[in-house]
Write a protein that binds this DNA or RNA. Structure first.
Lengths: 321, 321
DNA sequence: ACATATATACTCGAATTGAGTATTAAGTGG
DNA sequence: CCACTTAATACTCAATTCGAGTATATATGT
């Protein structure tokens, strides 16, 4: 009755910052060729909480001191975390952390550490300039095939529904994980072949989408993006990513980078101002060209005043302006 | 370097159903005197995923076959899960499950299993009839003291802010976990004394609020309620709790039970209808008194049509009608 | 002065929301 | 069978929010 395999707990963090309109995640070169999130085992002897264990690992691997952190999800599927070496099963707990990537910090980063635009891993998620062409040219045809290849009619209907919800009419920017999981199951993502041992279909054509990551790290990152995109709207989390003062356009660009969407400028500032999220400082930016913009800072008091303050998006559909 | 304690993973589920306007959770008499959620260790040798392990335990302890399940959170704090016996640390993964509590099912429940109104554990969360009196009479005075007892001014300000967000103006029904954690830290909840070994302050007066639960199970339940209250609004999860057909008032009563709030009847039906969440069957209920109401059923198709359908609440503030 | 590039203010109609009133369709007790 | 109760359903209305603009202001460079 005691055929118990051992379990160990892996902690991973998606550490996010935004700079130059690029939402970036901190990755480490973990020996292998694949990008990895900072991670390591949880050692219960030395840590009272999971989070304190996480801080230690992140500190060692990236010399980074994370601020805002939030637990994402616990993944335990056999096979999707090829247990490092022999031994037991790894159950991995994913975290999201938000930081300001200031130039001063850069010096203290570990050498084998790197910021990468998260749209490298999820190129279909960036709709800021236009709907990514790959959706029509590559993804939808492949998913159509995935539907057709279903073992029976009922499964086909289920798959069709998922394809439609994920990539059909009405883009829901929060369904990042759902989309990644669908692409994984449809074999459009390299990790699928690595985890299952199957060969890439039609080896010639490379249908692999986005840059793969170690273990289930791309899944954790997808969860992180989805959570962040959702949370934006009802909690003032963006400000964790902003410098102490910023112009309203800078704020908008950061939100756009995270959401992967363009917003309507005038409405965005209306929402932000009405909600009392920010307060002018009376100082102004000195731009290369154009009228200087007022510098604002986050009003911490809103947390007390409003029940669920967040940056409502104010999506744009019409022409640019 | 290998002073590794062992870790084991505990799985717990908050299994929720609603009957007779009472949101209920399935608890088991687990030997001890405290109510417990169905739970047990995860055995990686026999289960490919955490969820399949969960299903096994729940099946054994409650003879219950759960439908909709959703992972909530992974708790790993030392001390809040007094490890059963000796040995290593228990990291517990909490789940939420939704079911229909039909009379047929009842027979198959295990004998030491029981449905209990979740407001037994969280009496301050039920605002359907009125603001619970205990908030003014007991909770706020005790929390005022908690603020005053802060070690320094900065901590006091932080605590004041938390008290205000949790129990101040503008009730946010989703902050169930935040409120429980605050009451825990303020020592208003029995588990705090059990976990810390401290004696109940002023032993005479029983300031313990709500019915305590085993381990960190009340915390898991708080997380479950919070998640469910939030999810209601943007995903059609209520229908997991409904019979195949129901009247609109029945649906409203279930939503009210979960949210702990009263809704405006006319607006509620408008929202539900406009969103295309339900469809009339042409059949009618046979009530004891009053006009019979049409029976509706859930339109599964909305999942395909709308991006994020959910039962928007349509809260009422004015007089009843 | 004017072209260019932003920032910020203001407008306007459509849709959504909160709170009602009005009407309809049962069943009940005299 | 009629007044009364209870609940369902229809319809109204004003306030607010939202999406999409237009208009104006303030910089810089030439």
């Amino acid at each position: 009755m005691s055929s118990r395999e051992t379990v160990s707990i892996g902690l991973s963090a998606a550490i996010v910052a935004v700079e130059a309109n690029r939402p970036s995640v901190l990755v480490v070169a973990h020996g292998g060729s694949e990008d990895a999130l900072p991670f390591g085992p949880f050692d219960p002897a030395h840590h009272r909480t999971l989070e304190s264990g996480l801080h230690k690992w992140v500190g060692e691997q990236t010399r980074f001191d994370l601020g805002y952190t939030e637990q994402l999800y616990t993944f335990g599927d056999k096979g999707r975390h090829l247990s490092s070496g022999r031994g037991g099963r790894v159950v991995s707990v994913g975290y999201l952390a938000l930081t300001r990537k200031t130039s001063g910090e850069k010096l203290r980063e570990a050498p084998d550490t790197q910021w990468r635009d998260w749209y490298h891993y999820f190129p279909w998620e960036d709709w800021r300039d236009q709907k990514p062409a790959m959706i029509e040219t590559t993804i939808l045809p492949a998913l159509k095939k995935f539907v057709k290849d279903a073992p029976n009619a009922e499964m086909a209907e289920l798959r069709r529904e998922r394809v439609n919800v994920c990539f059909g009419e009405g883009w829901d920017e929060e369904r990042v994980l759902e989309r990644y999981e669908l692409l994984y199951e449809a074999g459009l993502v390299e990790e699928f072949y690595r985890d299952s041992g199957k060969a890439l279909k039609g080896a010639g054509q490379n249908t692999s989408l986005g840059t793969p990551m170690l273990f289930d790290h791309r899944r954790i990152l997808a969860t992180a993006i989805a959570r962040l995109r959702g949370k934006l709207k009802y909690r003032p989390v963006v400000f964790e990513l902003m410098a102490p003062t910023f112009t309203l356009l800078e704020l908008q660009r950061v939100v756009e980078a995270l959401a992967g969407l363009r917003l309507h400028k005038q409405n965005f500032r209306r929402l932000v101002a009405e909600q009392g999220l920010v307060e002018g400082t009376g100082k102004f930016s000195a731009p290369a060209r154009g009228r200087p913009a007022e510098l604002f800072h986050f009003r911490r008091e809103v947390l007390r005043e409003r029940p669920a303050p967040g940056v409502r998006l104010g999506v744009r559909r019409g022409k640019l302006s």
